[in-house]
Deep mutational scan, measured.
Amino acid sequence: LGPKYVGLWDFKSRTDEELSFRAGDVFHVARKEEQWWWATLLDEAGGAVAQGYVPHNYLAERE
């Protein structure tokens, strides 16, 4: 699936296409579209919880 990303700060969605998340949440990014990335929010087991657009500057690649 490629690298995983972690949320740096809490983010509250403003549209139906955006995905709310908390700092520390883990994502798989499917598409990078300039300022907004289409991402899947993952649970602790790595299963998909939700999908939506997230601001790229709120995520960091997980080491």
Rank of each mutant, 00 (worst) to 15 (best):
H28E: 13
T40L: 12
H28V: 14
Y5P: 00
W38S: 00
E17H: 12
D43A: 03
Y5D: 00
L42G: 01
A45P: 02
S20T: 10
L8Q: 05
Q35C: 14
W38D: 00
A30V: 15
A50G: 11
L8G: 02
E18F: 12
D43K: 00
S20G: 06
K12F: 14
N57E: 10
D10G: 04
E33Y: 11
A45C: 13
L59S: 00
E34I: 08
H56V: 11
L8D: 02
R14F: 09
G2A: 12
A50M: 08
W36H: 07
W36I: 07
L1C: 13
W9M: 10
E63L: 12
R62Y: 15
A39K: 01
A30E: 15
D25C: 08
L42R: 00
A39M: 01
R31T: 07
D25Q: 07
F27A: 00
V49H: 05
L42K: 01
N57W: 12
E44D: 12
Y58Q: 02
E18G: 11
G24D: 03
R62K: 14
W9Y: 14
W36E: 02
K32E: 03
F21I: 05
K32Q: 06
K12P: 05
A23N: 04
D16T: 10
L42Y: 07
Q35N: 14
A23L: 05
D16P: 15
G2F: 14
L42P: 00
L1S: 13
E63P: 12
E17V: 12
E18T: 11
A48T: 10
V49F: 05
L42N: 01
N57T: 10
F21N: 00
A23D: 03
L19Q: 02
W38V: 06
V54L: 04
R14N: 13
R14Q: 12
V26L: 14
P55E: 08
W9H: 09
E44F: 08
Y5M: 02
F11R: 05
L41W: 04
S20P: 04
A39S: 04
S13R: 09
L59D: 04
A39V: 15
G52Y: 03
Y5Q: 04
H28S: 10
G7V: 07
G47N: 15
E34P: 10
G46T: 05
E17R: 13
R31M: 08
V49P: 01
R31G: 05
L19G: 01
K4T: 15
K12S: 13
V29M: 00
D10S: 07
H56D: 06
P3V: 14
P3Q: 13
E61N: 07
Q51P: 01
E33T: 08
A60P: 02
F21L: 01
